[in-house]
Structure formats: C-alpha cells, structure tokens
Simulated assay, not measured.
Amino acid sequence: MKRRKFIKMAIGSASMWPMLSYADTYPSRPVTLVVPFSAGGPTDVLARLLSERMGAVLGQTVLVENVTGASGTIAGMRVARAAPDGYTIGIGHWGTHVLNGAIYPLQYDLLRDFEPVAMIANGPQLIIARPTLPPTDLKQLIAWLKDNPNKATAGTAGPGSGAHVSGVFFQNLTGTSFSFVPYRGAGPALNDLMAGHIDLMFDQASNSLSQVRGGTVKAYAVTAQSRLAAAPDIPTVDEAGLPGLYIAYWHGVWAPKNTPAEVITKLNAAVVTALADPALRQRFVELGQEIPPLEKQSPAALGKHQEAEIEKWWPIVKAANIRADL
C-alpha cells in the first residue's frame, strides 16, 4: 500500500516537473526574432538594436531572421504557426499588425493568433515634398493641392502600404485629390522624390529624416501631437494647421498564441530592460523613434493599442477600397 502511494506521488511529481521547470529554465537556447522586411530597413534596424540587448538580459542569443514578402504577411504566418514555446517571436508594426488585416485575405487572425509582448517604439510620419514644390508650409500645400486637383503625385511603397493609407487619410481630412505612384519600397520612392519625379510622400521619419536634414527634401509637418526630439524644428500637424492627422508606425513584439504567461513575462522584462538602456534610447531618438512610457510597454497595453488602431484604420482602408497588389 505504501509502495503504491509512493509510486502515485512520484508519477504526479514527474508530470508536474516540465510545467514547473520550463519557465525557470527558459530560455535554454537561442530565441529567433522574425523581422517581416529586408535587412537594413527601418524595422530591421530596430530589431537588431533590440535583439542585442534582449539577449544580454535573457542570457541567450536573440537571432534576427528576415522573412520578407507580401507586406509582412509571410512573416506573420511564420510566427502565428510557430510552436508557442517562446523561441520564435516576431516584430511588427502598424502596417503588419493593423492595415494588413483590412487589405489581405490573411490565413491568421491578427488579434487571436498572437500574444502581445511589448510595444517598443512609436515613429510618426513626416509629410515631405520635393525641394522645388512651391508651397512653403502645410497650409499653403493644402491650398496648392486644392488649386491643382489630381495634378500632384505622391509616392508610396505600394497599394495598402502605410504611405498609401496615410495619403488617403490626408485626402479625406483636407478634401484634396492627387495620384498615388506605387514603388517596390519607400527607398526607391524617396529617391524619386529627391530627383523631383514625384511631388509628395508620407514617410516614416526614420527613413527620410536624414534627407530633410540634408535639404534634399522639404518637410511640412510631423504626424504627431508633439514634435520629434530629433527634429524639433519641424512643426506638428496641429501647429501646421491640420489637427487630428495623427499617424504613427508604432512597433511591437508578439509571440504565438498560447505561449505560456511566464514566458511572456520574461520576454516583456527583457524588452523593458533593453528599452531602458541609455545607448539604445539615444539611437532610437536619432532614428526618429519615440520610446513609449513604461506603462505603455506592457503586453496588455500593446494589445489594447492594437485593437484601438484596428477600429480606427480598417473603416478608412475599406471605404477607400484599398486592395493588395497581389
């Protein structure tokens, strides 16, 4: 009888051991951070800065894996279908985890198939133009566009991209009309803007801020409620005369659905510690990125923000009948 009782206790303890020890031993091998865009782009740069410091906190290497294609939807599938063990996580942004749901026929659910880990950065856009465009401020730009309907051109990274949706939002608020010119990415579009082949862009500050500083493009406003620390001379849309045009390429980190809560807590702690590093914070500022306050860095805060953004942007995208260029 005693022997039977002892065996039951041993079996029970053994069955509990993996659950009890997993969170304690995680991570016991390298973690892969999936980036939905090519190396060298804005999201990749943020991922590499973050991964280095996360690895130091976790005690394991955080490997960056670039999984490109279809505006980040291939990477989204990679993370959504990965084992929920904390060893495959993904970085994404406003485009991949909000806009894509209204544009692409996704094979995964943006809210149900991921566990939020943390928001890492908020990068507002800049309204920029070729240097020779006549208007000198945002009010003059709006007036010029109204006087020249459908004559101006705005470069985008393709149908449904952040630059495209931002331009549609701008048109809705200002009653202006202009044509969109799709490119294979923001880089080629910016090159054509500098060359004077197109007139406008709604671009990530991290992509075009250096060109603004160099005078090869002109900036009318930043699409945020406060000025950029890296470019305090550029007015906000409120100051420039178009209140409410708030657009940001905020970035976050997600894990597959059903990743253990204890693992999410460890990953979040690693992100929060990384974001507190002074050198990383300075580098983010130089890239035109704003690190969210500590209370906005929790998994719950990221999930809530993502839901709010979906509620805001999906109706705009669908009303404009924006479709993916498949």
Score class of each variant (00 low, 15 high):
Met1Lys: 15
Ile11Arg: 09
Gly12Ser: 14
Gly12Met: 12
Gly12Asp: 04
Ser13Cys: 14
Ala14Ile: 15
Met19Arg: 12
Asp24Thr: 11
Asp24Glu: 14
Thr25Leu: 03
Pro27Tyr: 14
Pro30Arg: 02
Val31Leu: 07
Thr32Gly: 10
Val35Ile: 15
Pro36Asn: 06
Phe37Asp: 08
Ala39Ile: 13
Met54Thr: 07
Met54Cys: 06
Gly55Tyr: 05
Ala56Lys: 14
Leu58Trp: 10
Leu58Tyr: 07
Leu58Gln: 00
Leu58Pro: 05
Asn66Leu: 08
Thr68Lys: 02
Thr73Phe: 08
Met77Tyr: 12
Met77Trp: 11
Val79Phe: 08
Ala82Asn: 04
Thr88Val: 15
His97Leu: 11
His97Arg: 14
Leu99Ser: 01
Gly101Ala: 06
Arg112Asp: 15
Glu115Lys: 03
Val117Lys: 07
Ala118Pro: 02
Met119Phe: 00
Met119Pro: 00
Met119Lys: 10
Asn122Val: 11
Leu126Met: 13
Pro134Gln: 05
Pro134Val: 01
Asp137Leu: 10
Leu141Thr: 06
Ala143Arg: 03
Leu145Val: 04
Lys146Ala: 06
Asp147Glu: 12
Pro149Val: 02
Thr153Leu: 07
Ala154Asp: 09
Pro159Arg: 15
Gly160Gln: 12
Gly167Ile: 09
Phe170Thr: 11
Phe170Leu: 12
Ser177Pro: 01
Ser177Lys: 12
Phe178Ser: 06
Ser179Glu: 14
Pro182Ile: 10
Arg184Gln: 14
Ala186Glu: 11
Pro188Glu: 11
Leu190Val: 12
Phe202Val: 03
Leu209Lys: 03
Val212Cys: 00
Val212Trp: 02
Arg213Ile: 04
Gly214Ala: 13
Ala221Asn: 07
Ser226Thr: 15
Pro232Val: 10
Pro235Ser: 08
Gly241Asn: 03
Tyr246His: 09
Tyr249Gly: 00
Tyr249His: 12
Trp250Gly: 05
His251Leu: 13
His251Thr: 11
Gly252Leu: 03
Trp254Cys: 04
Lys257Arg: 15
Thr259Asn: 05
Ala261Cys: 08
Leu267Met: 02
Leu267Thr: 09
Leu275Lys: 08
Asp277Phe: 11
Val285Ala: 03
Val285Tyr: 06
Leu294Thr: 09
Glu295Arg: 00
Trp313Arg: 00
Val317Ile: 10
Arg323His: 13
